[in-house]
Nucleic acid binder design. Sequence first.
DNA 1: TCCTGTGAAACGGTTCACAGCC
DNA 2: GGCTGTGAACCGTTTCACAGGA
Lengths: 211, 211
Amino acid sequence: MSHRVSDSTVRRLSQYLRVLEDLERSGATTVSSEALAAGGGTTAAQVRKDLSQFGSFGKRGLGYPVVDLGARLRSILGLERRWRVVLVGAGRIGSALFSYPNFTSRGYDCVAVLDSDPVKVGRWWGAVPVRPAEELEEVIRTLDVDLVIIAVPAEEAQRVADRVVSAGAKGILNFAAVALRVPPHVPVTNVNLVMELEALSFSVTQVGKDA
Amino acid sequence: MSHRVSDSTVRRLSQYLRVLEDLERSGATTVSSEALAAGGGTTAAQVRKDLSQFGSFGKRGLGYPVVDLGARLRSILGLERRWRVVLVGAGRIGSALFSYPNFTSRGYDCVAVLDSDPVKVGRWWGAVPVRPAEELEEVIRTLDVDLVIIAVPAEEAQRVADRVVSAGAKGILNFAAVALRVPPHVPVTNVNLVMELEALSFSVTQVGKDA
DNA sequence: TCCTGTGAAACGGTTCACAGCC
DNA sequence: GGCTGTGAACCGTTTCACAGGA
């Protein structure tokens, strides 16, 4: 069971978990692969393949136990522990992320915010003060940080990433529009809003180009 | 040249365009597939395959002309025109998107912001007032809206999407954590920040699980 | 009967390798 | 010589179809 799990599978697991949590609230005890597929925007066969990579949770003829499967997915996704997170770049994107109710409830704790703008330094973000960017390494080490969110302009992102890696953070969520170069033991997840918008305008441009 | 272009290809084109714009500013006239690959985080062969789907822009032995290729990519991605955009949900995510310098410079104009919270209605977002959510259809029709950004809680997202589709918008950028059901002629691009975070924590959990 | 688990087939995207043009 | 354009091989993912347990 230690083979490579694809990225798309993981995203779908996250989606299934959301559906399961809704079902938990509604009191359902079992769920079929078909129902999970409907809620997750995919197919029943896909759901079964995805889940079978991690074991056999379902009962044939019945479906999957809602609570057990939810717990298992949380365990697989690494949501059973809490993650200590630092935000670099005290802009709107970071603030958007922190305002998500799921951010804290899913186990992520923002332990520091940093910014290179002296005007922002010293202000408070909820319970956390904005610190100067120079303190990055110190913060990562002394606050035992796991994940770093990079939300700075593209030109600065690689420099931040280098410092983050050498200070020993375990993963990076990158909002800057550059491909970061980091060693393979530090996973990076990229989110690029402009790229998504452009993918959308491409799709819209394509619609009706097939008559 | 009218075959199906994959989603991943489009995202990469968007990345290449960014690299080309940097090169334009630095005055370079040609660029090799290898250089584009380095800036875009892929391989030279991938760059050539991607571009060859739309024609032959390069000169063998030389590379690609920076300015021409940039223009061509903008045309392919639908960035030669301006897009009229409405934001539904006057929260932080939308505000983050609008604060991106590239949002306006790449051709996106926010023509309206809507929210169901009476406290937010009437406030101004830059040059645009926040309007009540009921006006959605009217706004889409009278302001000739192309794209709608859905940034509302998951429970409300499908209802908003239905109204958006029936009012005739051409595409949706969805920040809500649900798979929207829409007819095939309305492209949807999903951005799910919590899912990205969970994909990251999964990857970090996996690192070192292979010894 | 119902629904999962899973090999096998089909599909699509990426990589390779080289022919062809500058 | 250098670098693009592209068929062919490769590889991972999705879909299919059915065996088998509740």
